[in-house]
Structures are given as structure tokens and as C-alpha cells.
Write a protein that binds this DNA or RNA. Structure first.
Length: 316
DNA sequence: GGGCAGGTCTAAG
DNA sequence: CTTAGACCTGCC
């Protein structure tokens, strides 16, 4: 067992990020909050992985290709490619990205506890099921564009559009494992070639919304930083986001939660709507209910509910 | 081939 | 203020 120091570099060059109890990569990446991480089972020991439960995910964040693997009860930064040249260490980038400063084990226990007291067995089960699921701190612009694309859409198609958009407009990050990777496009890249946005695969009528959002960010008409909790309340942020074409209540809540750090956001999609109706008998004012029922953790409760529901449904 | 997918907009009542 | 319909497109 290696030491418990946070920043241990192993002989293979891996950096230990945290214990796998604190961060479940599969749940965190498959719960619908992000679109650029993919399961990448080791081709050489797939069988071993299936038995051990260890996983490998490759994704792009902060202009880096990041290869994460779990083994020996911990999550490791296997490699960041190309070499991270920023002054921020690999470990610190991911520590913040996964919000490892937040004690999610405690939050999960807290949600399970008060749900137990409320007699809310559904949320008790959901919280337990989702141990290790974390809400990422994603780039605000990436969240804005990604969730505009997510409207009336499904995950495979959303990922298809985003990857095609990144290939067309994002800075090349080179190859990794024989695959080409690109950073998420900067606002100026999208805004400077508005006509090409129409050509993004499966973008459809969402092209206009992407085009206008990029233009407003580039012109300074929309400053996402000003919508973070440091400068704005959740409600004001949603109000501002909703002034953009193609952003309604649900998308605004997603951007607020996943891109801006508003943990009181509660995106209500068809799944959540069905769950709130079947489990709590709520037919309207879903957000109001969530704010009262889930106290200070509506955003996390929403993710627990969403992921738990999806997984139960797929098992059928 | 018709229906659906992690909504939003628009035109009407 | 509430409520139908239409809507790009890939996939079953």
C-alpha cells in the first residue's frame, strides 16, 4: 500500500488522484452531465478489468487529453497529453475539476439521512446507489454550448454533434492511442465561422442557438464569469441565460449547475418530471418542490435521481 | 418507415 | 399565464 499523501507519483508515472470511494468515474461520467469522456477498457486486459471492476476513461478537459484509470482502490491520472504546460499542476487541475475539496461522502450521507427522516425511501436508495458520483466543475462556455445542443436530443447524438464541432472548430491536441483529439472550441472560433456551424453533424435547428451564444460571449454581451455564484444568484443567472435564443428553463439550469457552480440549480427534464410525479405526486412547480425538499443540495439530488432512474430502467 | 429523444419557440386561447 | 404543435436528425 503506498502512502496516503495526495500527490504520490508512482513508478509508472501515474499520479494518485484520490480513493475510488470518493470518485466513481463511471457514475460521474455516465450521469449525463458531460459529453466528452469515454470508457476505454484496456485492450490488453479487458477480462481482468471486468473482474476487478477497474475502469479507464479518456476525455478532454482544459485543453488536455486526460487518461484516468482505477486500480488498487484509487483513481490515478495515468497520463495527460500533450504535456501540460500550464503553471497549474495536473493534480490541481483535476482536483478542481472533480471538486475534490467537497466532501461528497458527507453530502451523500446527509441527503440519505434527511431523506430517511422524511420517509423518502426513493431518495435514500438513489443516494446510496450513487456513491462516488460527483458534479464536475466544467468550463462555463463548454457547458453553455453543450447543453444548448442537448435540447430535445439524446446522448449519443449530442456526443456526435459535440465531437464533430470540436474537430471542426477546436484546437488540435494531437493523437493519443491512435486517435485525434481536439479541445472544445473557443468562442472566437465558433463566432468567426458562423456558416460552418450549420454543417456540424446532427446539429439541426440548434445551429442558430449555438451561433448566437458564441457571438454574445465573444462580443462581451454575455460574460459567463459574472453569472457564477461569486457575482450572481442562481435565479439571476438563469434569468440572464434564458434571454438567449434556444435556452429555456431546463438548459439554463444545466448550464448553471454544471458550468457555473450553482448547486441550487435543479434541471427538470422528462425523467425528473416522471420521477417527481410518481414518487412524490408533484405535477407542477418542480423546482420549488426541490428547493424545499432537498434543502441545500437540489443539484446533487437531481443527479442522484436522474442516474438512479436511468440505471434502473436499463436493467429492465 | 413511423416514432422517439435528457426542450424551446411560437401562435393561440 | 397556460397549452398544443412543429421542429433537425440519427437510430431502432
Amino acid at each position: 500500500m503506498d502512502s496516503d499523501t495526495k500527490n504520490t507519483k508512482s513508478s509508472t508515472g501515474e499520479i494518485k488522484l484520490c480513493r475510488d470511494k470518493e470518485l466513481d468515474l463511471r457514475k460521474t461520467f455516465e450521469c449525463g452531465q458531460c459529453f466528452r469522456w469515454n470508457n476505454a477498457a484496456h485492450t490488453d486486459n479487458r477480462h481482468e478489468e471486468a473482474v476487478s471492476g477497474d475502469v479507464r476513461y479518456i476525455g478532454v478537459a482544459h485543453k488536455n487529453i486526460i487518461d484516468l484509470r482505477t486500480h488498487d482502490g484509487a483513481v490515478y491520472i495515468h497520463r495527460i497529453h500533450p504535456q501540460n504546460t500550464s503553471h497549474i499542476a495536473d493534480y490541481d487541475i483535476l482536483f478542481n475539476y472533480f471538486s475534490l475539496d467537497e466532501d461528497y461522502i458527507k453530502i451523500q450521507d446527509n441527503i440519505a439521512d434527511f431523506s430517511q427522516k422524511n420517509g423518502d425511501k426513493f431518495m435514500v436508495d438513489a443516494a446510496k446507489y450513487c456513491s462516488g458520483l460527483r458534479i464536475l466543475r466544467q468550463d462555463p462556455f463548454e457547458a453553455l454550448i453543450s447543453f444548448i445542443i442537448s435540447a430535445n436530443n439524446n446522448i449519443p447524438k449530442i456526443k456526435l454533434s459535440i465531437e464533430d464541432m470540436c474537430a471542426r472548430f477546436g484546437k488540435s491536441l494531437g493523437e493519443y492511442g491512435g486517435k485525434a483529439y481536439h479541445a472544445f472550441p473557443a468562442p472566437e472560433a465558433l463566432a468567426s465561422r458562423p456558416d460552418e456551424i450549420e454543417n456540424i453533424r446532427a446539429i439541426g435547428y440548434r445551429a442558430r442557438a449555438v451561433r448566437e451564444a458564441a457571438a454574445k460571449v465573444l462580443s462581451g454581451e454575455l460574460i459567463l464569469e459574472e453569472l457564477t455564484p461569486k457575482y450572481s444568484t442562481f435565479k439571476d443567472s438563469v434569468k440572464t441565460l434564458r434571454t438567449l435564443y434556444g435556452i429555456g428553463e431546463k438548459v439554463a439550469n444545466c448550464v448553471a449547475l454544471f458550468g457555473l457552480g450553482h448547486m441550487d440549480a435543479f434541471p427538470v427534464d422528462t425523467w425528473i418530471k416522471k420521477a417527481l410525479t410518481s414518487q412524490y405526486g408533484i405535477e407542477k412547480d418542480f423546482e420549488k418542490f426541490a428547493a424545499e425538499h432537498f434543502k441545500v443540495h437540489p443539484g446533487i439530488a437531481q443527479q442522484y435521481m436522474f442516474f438512479y432512474l436511468r440505471e434502473q430502467n436499463f436493467k429492465k
